[in-house]
Design a protein around this nucleic acid. Structure first.
Lengths: 312, 312
DNA sequence: TTGTAAGCGTTATCAA
DNA sequence: TTGATAACGCTTACAA
């Protein structure tokens, strides 16, 4: 009997209207994602992982870019909830966002990507930031650098940046490294040149390296170094986030690659898990291990300019 | 009287439910966008322009990534239409897509980004491909290259690629250039090395250059050239699409930058225009002019390795 | 097993 | 000017 309607539906090309369905409160099959900056390759890479996972689960993904604008974030949040999303993956929200906290307490499955949010007890998925900093400092130490400048975007905006800065500051002394932190506003990189000079021009004989907090910073710093004709390797350069061009800029830029696909997929799984749980379990935090991709930019004794061909 | 309800709505934080609204058939304020490859920086850049324009118009944008998969494309199309979008911006659809044609003939405002589609008479917004090829060939000729290899992704997939190939083939003879076309499957770049060798190893004394059809190709070719230790400039390299790293790879990669923001915004405007028209006017084609950013990779007599600092 | 009815939050139409 | 009512397409609960 049901066969007959199923087959008639097939024949007529019937497709249920998700609007009507959503009205009544049924499952929407929709997952929302809030991205702080769609032009950040890391975000895009994670998003790709999220998409794949959604597809595998038969879910549809609705992506919104907030461009780091709290107002936009609020609007998009309203849009997403009005479409009855079943889960939300968030890679935005600089500060404690009230609407977001409200949603979480309303029981909407929520996964925070690459950041924690004050006052919101939600699942988190992201890099193991402490480990990443440790790995970076270990590598730089091994390569013989004794002074390190950590350049990061304004850490007030994202908790992961704060974590990295904190770890950097606590771990440098442990390794007898002279550490310094530079907070950068990417819209105004004039101070970068200045600070870079100040850091590099100290002729105390200790080899110096620069550690970049994310891909955008790596780009800005590489540009600045190149403008000042500073050869890489002699002055160390290392970045968190692997980028297309890191192997192209001679002698190659050393990076800590994030497992972006895995992170995206984990976010969706987390969402499903939570949906399946009738009583909300304690928030889970998933921290992924980065992969060190050593290249020429952290090789001090340049034995001929060997092009690095490591692939990401 | 209406004031009272307006103020009550404000007080209670009332927000109309777009589901219910959509059910009845009212305006949804939603625009859909289909992107073939979210990891293509060009697509992301255009998407950013689209977003800005939507915001300015008070529209919400729903983006779907098809990953060049016709099946996914169909699914996403179904999703978007079920949400009663008021307009659709498409940067996918390799071949004549039936569902798309259907939508267009149903009167849904449709803008094709960077491609035409057989059998679909819709508005188109994109680069002036003929002009772009002409500009590239002019530049390469001026710089003294006499042989050019045009590397493109499989042109069967996108009309803009076909247009570029056709123009390349017809214009090379005009300029007494020896032109050759290489169609590349980016998932399998083994043939690239091979073909590159074949092209460059012909010692007929004529300076050779490689022209890349888009950013992804530029990346693949730059990698291949670097692997073979071929210095840029001597062998010319030029790409369509400006990328972050083009100024970083010494001596800088010459590009034709697309005005991505303008293209995205034009797409949304086109949508609105069409919506406003009661009777559908003939499809409009908007073709944008690229910007030549000359760098060291097309400079033959390298007078000292001057770092190019032109910004995009 | 099959059929009917109410309700989800809007908008549009029509009467009062 | 205002208020009541039907309809959008679906789900769910209950009656035949």
């Amino acid at each position: 009997m049901q066969q007959r309607i199923a087959e008639a539906a097939e024949r007529l090309g019937y497709q249920p209207n998700p609007m009507a369905r959503g009205l009544k409160g049924g499952p929407s099959g929709l997952v929302g994602m809030l991205v702080a900056d769609i032009r950040n390759p890391f975000s895009v890479a994670v998003m790709h992982g999220v998409e794949q996972a959604c597809r595998a689960q038969g879910l549809s993904l609705m992506v919104c870019n907030t461009d780091n604008d709290p107002v936009l974030e609020r609007q998009h949040l309203a849009l997403l909830t009005s479409y009855r999303i079943e889960g939300l993956i968030v890679n935005a929200a600089g500060r404690h966002s009230e609407p977001l906290a409200e949603l979480a307490s309303d029981g909407l499955p929520l996964v925070l990507l690459d950041r924690s949010l004050e006052g919101i007890a939600a699942d988190e998925v992201g890099l193991d930031n402490n480990l990443a900093i440790d790995m970076a400092l270990d590598h730089l130490t091994e390569q013989g650098y004794r002074r390190v400048l950590f350049v990061t975007e304004l850490p007030t905006r994202a908790s992961s940046r704060q974590t990295r800065v904190a770890r950097f500051e606590s771990e440098c002394p442990e390794r007898q490294l002279a550490g310094k932190v530079l907070s950068l506003d990417l819209d105004d990189t004039t101070c970068l040149d200045h600070e870079l000079s100040a850091f590099l021009d100290t002729p105390d004989g200790h080899p110096a390296a620069i550690l970049c907090g994310n891909g955008q910073v790596t780009l800005a710093v590489t540009r600045a170094l190149q403008a000042r004709r500073i050869p890489l390797g002699d002055t160390g350069l290392m970045g968190i986030d692997e980028l297309d061009w890191c192997q192209l800029v001679t002698p190659g830029v050393t990076t800590l690659a994030q497992p972006t696909d895995a992170i995206g997929q984990a976010a969706v799984e987390q969402l499903r898990d939570r949906q399946a749980q009738p009583i909300a379990p304690a928030p889970r935090h998933l921290r992924f291990t980065p992969q060190l991709i050593p290249r020429g930019s952290t090789r001090r004794e340049q034995s001929a300019s060997t092009t690095d061909e490591t692939s990401p």
